[in-house]
Design a protein around this nucleic acid. Sequence first.
DNA 1: CGGTTGTTTGAACTGATTCAATCTGTGTGG
DNA 2: CCACACAGATTGAATCAGTTCAAACAACCG
Lengths: 237, 237
Amino acid sequence: MIRDMSRAETGVELEETLVKVGMDLSAAKALGEMPHKVVHVDPRRPFREPGSPRDEVMFVRSGIMCKYKSDGSGRRQIVALRFPGEGILPSPSNADYGLQAIARSEIMVGSAEDFAKVVEEHPSINGFLYKLVQREASISHEWLVNCGRRDSTARVAHLLCETAARCGIDGAKQSLRLPFTQQQIADITGQTSVNVNRVFAELERQGLIEREGRNISFADWNEIKRVGSFQPDYLLS
Amino acid sequence: MIRDMSRAETGVELEETLVKVGMDLSAAKALGEMPHKVVHVDPRRPFREPGSPRDEVMFVRSGIMCKYKSDGSGRRQIVALRFPGEGILPSPSNADYGLQAIARSEIMVGSAEDFAKVVEEHPSINGFLYKLVQREASISHEWLVNCGRRDSTARVAHLLCETAARCGIDGAKQSLRLPFTQQQIADITGQTSVNVNRVFAELERQGLIEREGRNISFADWNEIKRVGSFQPDYLLS
DNA sequence: CGGTTGTTTGAACTGATTCAATCTGTGTGG
DNA sequence: CCACACAGATTGAATCAGTTCAAACAACCG
């Protein structure tokens, strides 16, 4: 099967991304020209620890980043993902979450201070930021439903659908290069990796997906959307 | 035991609340003078259905409101709470969540349009809004850890601690008038009401709480914080 | 008083975890 | 090219936390 390069692999540009979502050119330019460094982050290495200051704006150009927390006994929960074209806004005080790469990622990092200055000069950015955080809140809420109310099969199915959608892949036609290990899927869906493995086997046995290593093709896209009760509306912002 | 009136019962004023969190007076005044109506919402009656337009700003003066969603099979999950002094911002398109009162609530409702106008005239509000949504995101993340990684006892304990904190109650000294039914606690923590009931009985048996109807006193505040691995930092915004 | 809403309890069941072992693929250095 | 190490995937068996279903009980309200 021929597969387009997903955004996760190609890398996306900041200014172009901002204009695409409707930001006016001068504001997008100002953000693009903000002082920043480009950082390559390796998966599962510590990048930003929970509790450290988070006085930076970040923009993901390629790869996938995640925010994670852990409960008292050290069990890890991934609470948010950032795909290429998405960003991480600064937190006022020290953040309660850590940052890591899911897959090798290339990100732009600027200072919160510079960012605040640009926003002040271009107030139109506020509306854009507002949409951004709204979308993130929607996704958080959907994840909460996922962890709180769906069984393990539905949770994994839902994550697969969401991942395909956020990678810009049409599950009905294209296959998905899964960026996660089963342990990471467990950390997102609140399970153990052992069970995630069994769910995958079961999804394949039921003819919903086919696997070749980490390549997932959706043998029955509509059915897997149903199983995961995936309604993509919440992703539209 | 003598108990202070919690904020949930007294009602709080918009302008005063805004000034208290650092908004400048003219902006707070402008928001306070925005055209609005005051609505009384009864618990568990439909108030705003999922999928309906959400072109309103709301401010909770008393009671507690919740955002809820349901998965495919109709199992309900409460994804966010709004205590007095907190607000609900408009969503750009139709919201994927519904709104309901947890306890009888009194809320102020204004139009998104008027709100946008005021924000435009007082750009300083943006910083305030930004802190607001950051705090909400933090809480969402914490809830995700709660549902995804903690066992049922810890989930309930954590919710009790969070609720006390958000009601402005010091668990070590004051008792908490629990605003939730056990079913609602189940909807927040992703369980069944049957199990929530057992958890309560167990918490009481272990000497962590004492109950008189819905009045909860924390017999061992430090220990219940530990059991729920409650670190209140995430509430500070 | 009767109706409604919420709480409590029991018994049977099941989905997911835990622990442990094995297998597979990939990369590294000799 | 092989040996080795390592990370991730897979499988099995025992156990347990939480669900489901059903019924009883308590409190409240018009």
